[in-house]
Design a protein around this nucleic acid. Sequence first.
DNA 1: GCCCTAATGATAACATATTCACAAGTATTT
DNA 2: AAATACTTGTGAATATGTTATCATTAGGGC
Lengths: 207, 207
Amino acid sequence: MSNHQNVPKATLQRYPVYLKALRKLQHLGISRIMSRELSEFVDVEPTTIRRDFSFLGSLGKQGYGYDVGSLIEIFDAHLGGAFQEKLIIVGAGNLGRALMNYNRWNHVVGEIACAFDINADKSGNAYEIPVYAMSQLKEKLPEGCRIAILTISSNVQETVDQLVSVGIKGIVDFTHEHIQVPKGVTVKEVDVVSMIQELVFETNALK
Amino acid sequence: MSNHQNVPKATLQRYPVYLKALRKLQHLGISRIMSRELSEFVDVEPTTIRRDFSFLGSLGKQGYGYDVGSLIEIFDAHLGGAFQEKLIIVGAGNLGRALMNYNRWNHVVGEIACAFDINADKSGNAYEIPVYAMSQLKEKLPEGCRIAILTISSNVQETVDQLVSVGIKGIVDFTHEHIQVPKGVTVKEVDVVSMIQELVFETNALK
DNA sequence: GCCCTAATGATAACATATTCACAAGTATTT
DNA sequence: AAATACTTGTGAATATGTTATCATTAGGGC
């Protein structure tokens, strides 16, 4: 696989946006697109789009533009569409269950293989995803699973350490605590409170 | 209120992280902190922390550090802790209800005043938050409400336009569609799929 | 097959963000 | 009370990210 190390952070954050837009365009029957058109769609400058794409190779043709289908294939290959990631949910409370009942996971980045909770008997969800006890983490962890979605509300750091010790490399963090991970493990925070705080700050600036 | 306009975007995104860390420190009984110590806690360079803080004034003392309590007060004042924001949830499906059952809202940024849905009778949640029909948006919108949390899955753009027309200035967007808003309105996207895609990309880079 | 048009991809200019380095000043020690 | 140790806040330097410009090359028309 090509060398991803040097893709700018900012660029990486736009890749999923591009992929989403391209899927929508394909759905609309559009099979060819120019950076200028795509620009209006995703609200990113055409030249930024071209530079972002260029990190993954020469994807377009001069004087022509980009082929939507090929782009989707390429982004899929890099962003997990083709890898069928096995994901786990850690914490089967309200939020954990809401995520399990989400039906948009499959064939996008992968599937939720199972969930873990202190209480193993918190089963019963629309997609019959098994819920195991935290103590069974090591034995029940799916082969090759690298990414965990964290929706617990206590023993957070302790649980994170446990996840890291069994080889988890990426965590989508819904807890409200600040967690610490060793180098080589990435955390993406989802904190609605933080987002609202940012909104409040920005909104106040306009007063 | 001081001039927020020129706080860098990157800095703004770190403010909630600092506030969260400071709260934890206070909880641990620590009342004084230096940028170097805080650095290890939040994984941001000390000098970046100092610069970030400096946009809000001279908050520290040379040769001493920062007072945790004062910092929390100041961040609270800027990030909504003191403003008691009135929030609304738009969309009372699985996710909307999960957010309503969250008990961490109050006394952090504000409270969820009410929710709206096409189906007004999707009531019944742990905190007795009323759910109104979308058609009642204008009359039931709380006084001074500026921020909406969007958890619907259809008629997305149409609903956004409606929200903007009644004066909403900030949207936390849980939908998976790309929405468009006029200038002066800010959107914060929460997309778990995108986050996993970013994680997959980064994790692949290390293989 | 040749010209013309048009869009990419790369290089260079610019803008934003981070880090270095140090003056200024507070607390603590002697 | 003076000296020392230490940390802030900021101007300058660096690094990262974005936008403008343009040579290059693919495709469509003649």
